[in-house]
Nucleic acid binder design. Structure first.
Lengths: 196, 196
DNA sequence: CATTTTACATACATACTGTATGTATGTAAA
DNA sequence: TTTACATACATACAGTATGTATGTAAAATG
């Protein structure tokens, strides 16, 4: 029973949406494809028609989550003209976005484990990490950053932000933890600021 | 056929040893318990007698890996008297240990995903992270560190080191990447050093 | 209008975890 | 020395999950 283009897209979107909920709430390993398709009033045949495998489905979900987060980071960072403030705003936005809607599980825990670090990193590269690297590169070109390996610093900061997000997420007073982290990041960045 | 204490311990050690190899090489999800026990010339009954579940086995393996790494970090850090140098040495030792023997997969990828972040963090707490926190606390008490949340800084640094280790691990020239990171960490720590 | 393609459903093969049960052996107390 | 029980496994099986092969109805295509 062939559907038209719009119906097909709706099917895919529905599967992605429901899958995202299951992955966030139960995690990748404890999510059964059967449950997803039942909720979507479909069968596993439909799912396997649109996605190569369980991993393929997860990867598609991860991609959309990453896109969402990256957009928020970019929007927030753009609110300032000062490169240092942009960086701080971006970091803060990233941590905030990773927290909300419990994106952290897909983004930071199952992501690397399910797809493998290389694949996960490749995807992250095209979203949040790209923004971070470009920002740092720009700052160094403008002579505002001490001479340090941009690659090393990008990974270092990225990892720090990821773990910070996970830490903040489970703190009773998350907003205070976020404040402490933001303040600390400002202090840290001072170490890299090139004196005029 | 009851064995004596020593034989029993040997069985457990053998299972742990083989399991560790499988987890490092194939990852948690792609490791079949059946393969492990066959290699140990046992059956799954034996494994389930000594370990509660697949997760239980993994947790036991993770614990031993963490212990190994923590010992190396402690040994290295103790080689200096200066607290700042201790910190730098410790960071470097951690990254090095996470790399070698491909510990990274158990330690940093499957660890958090399989056991959940809270449980993983609780375990890490008692090993590498404890060292890091104590070091930072000591430094702050000695007035060598700017007034910043130790908790926030500990998590931030820990995450940064973890991601750096994963990054370095897959670089063609790992030793150079390690150098760049070490150099960057020194620079970064400057930002936190309290002026005399 | 005939044919092909698409979007699914259905049925089944395969694989793996976990559990229930059986059994031989060691140990401690009666 | 017998008895009672715990321990260390083996064996068999149940349950559940992914993935694959095949069937089918309807839209698209020529």
């Amino acid at each position: 029973m062939k559907r038209n283009q719009e119906e097909t897209n709706a099917t895919i979107r529905k599967l992605l949406e429901i899958a995202r909920l299951h992955f966030t709430e139960r995690g990748y390993a404890d999510t059964a494809l059967e449950d997803i398709v039942q909720e979507a009033q479909l069968t596993r045949g439909a799912l396997y028609h649109h996605f190569r495998s369980k991993k393929g489905l997860f990867q598609a979900v991860l991609e959309s989550v990453q896109q969402e987060v990256a957009e928020k980071v970019e929007t927030q960072a753009a609110k300032s003209e000062d490169v240092w403030e942009q960086l701080a705003l971006g970091c803060r936005a990233f941590v905030g976005a990773a927290l909300e809607a419990q994106n952290k599980r897909i983004l930071l825990l199952d992501g690397p484990a399910v797809l493998g670090w290389e694949e996960w990193r490749r995807m992250d590269e095209q979203h949040s990490m790209r923004l971070l690297r470009e920002q740092l590169q720009g700052m160094q070109q403008q002579g505002q950053l001490k001479p340090v390996s941009i690659e090393a610093l990008t990974h270092f900061l990225s990892g720090a932000l990821n773990e910070s997000a996970l830490w903040i997420a489970q703190m009773a007073d998350a907003s205070q933890a976020l404040e402490e982290t933001a303040q600390m990041i400002s202090l840290l960045l001072e170490g890299f600021r090139k004196p005029e």
